[in-house]
Amino acid sequence: MYVGAGLLALWTFVPIYWLLAMSFMYNSEVVTIPADLYPHQPTFANYLRLFDLPAYGLSGQRLATIGQAAIVRQGWVNSLIVAVSVTALTMLLAVPLAYALGRLKFRLRSTLLFSVVTTRAYPPIAVLIPFSFLFSVVGLEGTRLALIIIYLTITIPLVSWVLTGFFAGVPLSVEKLARVDGLTRWQTFYRVMVPVAGPGIAACAVIAFIAAWNEFTFSLILTAGSSSQTFPPTLSGMFFQVADPAAMAAASILGFLPPALVALAFQKWIRQVNIVDPL
């Protein structure tokens, strides 16, 4: 059993460990074959170089900066703005939708539920060209607003699906009691059902945040090179421009940190998510 536990720990952590280790190593340690397996002289030099701050090498020589500080900072800030906006809007729109789909009886319920799921069948690539035409017509080309709108078409179906299950799982008696107590349907919804489904709603907010922060394809095509470029395409751009593994590792860590921290902080709630329920 401990062998299995060890294997699972290695499987989860080795890829993350290696990038983290690389980000604290000097390039000379990384590019040799075989590379050093851990930083012999741990250094923040890569992070400093990334932000165009002075950093010094092993023999005290001044290391060259990466020259991408403004782009990295901008990508990070854009990702933050986009992800937070998408999360807030998604919850505002998807919570009532999921409540109705999970809780109320009406004729089109299962048809609508299924069609919400089907929108997930689209590869982003398939609707990219029309979206970019659409955005250029309405003057949203290369803006964060365009990305936010597109991401909502991804997160709302995803989150509604998961939340539908949460609402469906709340005992019927809770809702009945509220109604007997004389609450209107609206009051029952936002005073009773929303708080009861709180953990599920929190988990879904995290899922929406992570999805928006990490989205790559739409952002690459719609914002690469513009001032609203988010972090993932910034990173892919650097991959092809900067032949500097240690600095790339440091940049990647900066981009991976927010979703990882959010996921760890809320993992208890995410674990309660049950995708099976709505069926």
Binding site: L8, T12, F13, P15, I16, I210, N214, F216, P232, L235, S236, S252, G255, F256, P259, A260, V262, A263, L264, Q267, K268, I270, R271
Partner: peptide, 13 residues
């Protein structure tokens, strides 16, 4: 608690 980590990092990561 940490099993969720790889998922949070997404496919590009």
């Amino acid at each position: 608690a940490t099993a969720i980590l790889p998922w949070s990092l997404s496919t590009y990561a």
